[in-house]
C-alpha cells in the first residue's frame, strides 16, 4: 500500500511541472496557426512567380501583338499563323531535335555504360562527386574552350592529324554535320556526368543480396544488368533523361558562342532562333509566339513520356 501511494505522489509531482510548461506557451489564434506555413514558403513562391510566371504570361500576351518597341498593334493569332509557315522555324525545330536527340542518346549510353562498369568500385562509391567536375564549369566558359579546341585553336584538328586520321586541317564550320558534331561533343562533355551520377547512384542503391542471388542463379554481370538493374531503374532513367531533354531543348550558349547557327542555319536551335527573332530582328511578338509554341511542344512530349513510363512501370 505504502508502495502504491509513493508512486501516486511521484506521478503527481511529474504532472505539475509539465502543466507549468504548457501554460508558458501563449495560445495562438487558429488563423495565425493556419497562416504560418504560407508565411514560410511565401517569399520563395513570390520570387518564383516573379521570375517565371510573370515573364511567361507576359510572353503569351505579347505573342498576340506585332511589337516594334513601344508600338504594339493587335495581331490576334497572326504571329502563330506566320510561324507555322516559316521554314526557318521548322528548320530550327528539326535542328534542335537532331542535335538534342543525338546528344541525349550519346549521353545516356555513355553515362549508363560507365556507371555499369564502375558502380561497385570503392573509389567511385566514395568519390562519385568528383565526376561532377565538368558540370561545375560556367557554360559560357565551356563553350569558349570548345570553340578554341575546334575552330580558333585547331587543337582537335592537330590531334587528329597527329594520329593520322586526317591529313589536312578540318574546318568544322564548313559542313552541316561537322558543325552539329561540335555542339554535340561540347554538350556531351559537360552534361554526361549529370546522368552518370544519377545512374551510378541508382545502381549503388540496388540490393546487393539480389545481385548475389542472381550470381548464384548463374547470371553474368551483363545478365544482371539487362534483366534486373535496367528494368528496375526505368523510372529513374525516364525522369533523368526527361530533365536532360528539357534542358537540351533550350540549348543556347554553345550555339551562340561556337557556331552562331552556321553553316546556313544548320546549327540554329530553337533558342537561338527565338533569340535572333527577338534581339537581332526585334520581332518581339513573333519571338514570343515561338517561345510559347516551344513551351507547349516540350510540355506535351515530356508529359507523354513520363506518364507512359510510369504507367507501364506500375503494372
Amino acid at each position: 500500500m505504502a508502495h502504491s501511494t509513493q508512486t501516486l505522489e511521484k506521478g503527481a509531482a511529474k504532472a505539475a511541472p509539465a502543466a507549468a510548461v504548457y501554460s508558458i506557451r501563449r495560445p495562438r489564434s487558429a488563423t495565425a496557426k493556419k497562416m504560418f506555413p504560407y508565411l514560410l514558403v511565401g517569399p520563395a513562391v513570390l520570387y518564383l512567380l516573379a521570375i517565371t510566371l510573370y515573364p511567361g504570361l507576359f510572353a503569351m500576351y505579347q505573342s498576340l501583338f506585332v511589337v516594334k518597341f513601344v508600338n504594339w498593334s493587335w495581331a490576334g493569332l497572326g504571329n502563330y499563323t506566320r510561324i507555322v509557315q516559316d521554314r526557318e522555324f521548322w528548320a530550327a525545330l528539326a535542328n534542335t531535335a537532331i542535335i538534342g536527340g543525338l546528344s541525349l542518346c550519346l549521353q545516356t549510353i555513355i553515362a549508363m555504360t560507365v556507371a555499369f562498369y564502375c558502380y561497385r568500385d570503392p573509389f567511385v562509391r566514395g568519390w562519385r562527386i568528383v565526376f561532377l567536375m565538368p558540370m561545375l564549369f560556367m557554360p559560357s566558359a565551356v563553350a569558349f574552350i570548345w570553340k578554341l579546341a575546334f575552330n580558333d585553336g585547331r587543337v582537335i584538328s592537330d590531334l587528329l592529324m597527329a594520329i593520322g586520321l586526317v591529313s589536312n586541317n578540318v574546318d568544322w564550320l564548313s559542313s552541316v554535320w561537322l558543325a552539329r558534331l561540335t555542339l554535340i561533343v561540347a554538350d556531351v562533355w559537360q552534361w554526361t556526368p549529370f546522368l552518370f551520377i544519377i545512374f551510378v547512384g541508382a545502381l549503388q542503391g540496388q540490393d546487393e543480396e539480389i545481385e548475389e542471388a542472381a550470381r548464384l542463379d548463374g547470371a553474368s554481370w551483363g545478365d544482371i544488368f539487362w534483366n534486373i538493374s535496367l528494368p528496375m531503374m526505368r523510372p529513374i532513367i525516364v525522369v533523368a533523361v526527361t530533365l536532360r531533354g528539357i534542358d537540351i531543348t533550350t540549348m543556347f550558349t554553345n550555339v551562340y558562342i561556337m557556331t552562331q547557327g552556321t553553316p546556313g542555319g544548320a546549327t540554329e536551335t530553337m533558342s537561338y532562333f527565338i533569340y535572333r527573332q527577338g534581339f537581332r530582328m526585334f520581332n518581339f511578338g513573333y519571338a514570343s509566339a515561338a517561345s510559347v509554341l516551344m513551351l507547349l511542344i516540350t510540355i506535351v512530349i515530356a508529359q507523354t513520356i513520363v506518364k507512359r513510363a510510369f504507367k507501364s512501370g506500375k503494372s
Partner: peptide
C-alpha cells in the same frame, strides 16, 4: 566463380527480383 558452382541459395531477405 559463384555462378559456376551449381549451388542454390535462399537468402534471409528472400532476394526475389522485384521487377
Amino acid at each position: 566463380d559463384a555462378r559456376d558452382r551449381d549451388v542454390a541459395m535462399v537468402f534471409q531477405g528472400y532476394a526475389l527480383y522485384p521487377n
